[in-house]
Amino acid sequence: MTGTLNLVGYGLAAIGPGLAVGMIFAAYINGVARQPEARSVLQPIAFLGFAMAEALALFGLVLAFVL
């Protein structure tokens, strides 16, 4: 088998953002389920948090191919 260690590194680096995205949406769903009228307040916050976490994962993806 041939391959590059960069992609193994990317796989490891994707664990953190993966967990983070899961936790963010878990908290969002929890909040909306407890208090449906809070949805419009929570939605931008949830998506901004998602964007922050996802940016790190995409960083890993780009660097895995560039470095």
Partner: peptide, 10 residues
């Protein structure tokens, strides 16, 4: 892509 690794199955 540097750091190429080669695994050989026995």
């Amino acid at each position: 892509m540097r750091s190429l690794v080669v695994f050989r199955a026995e």
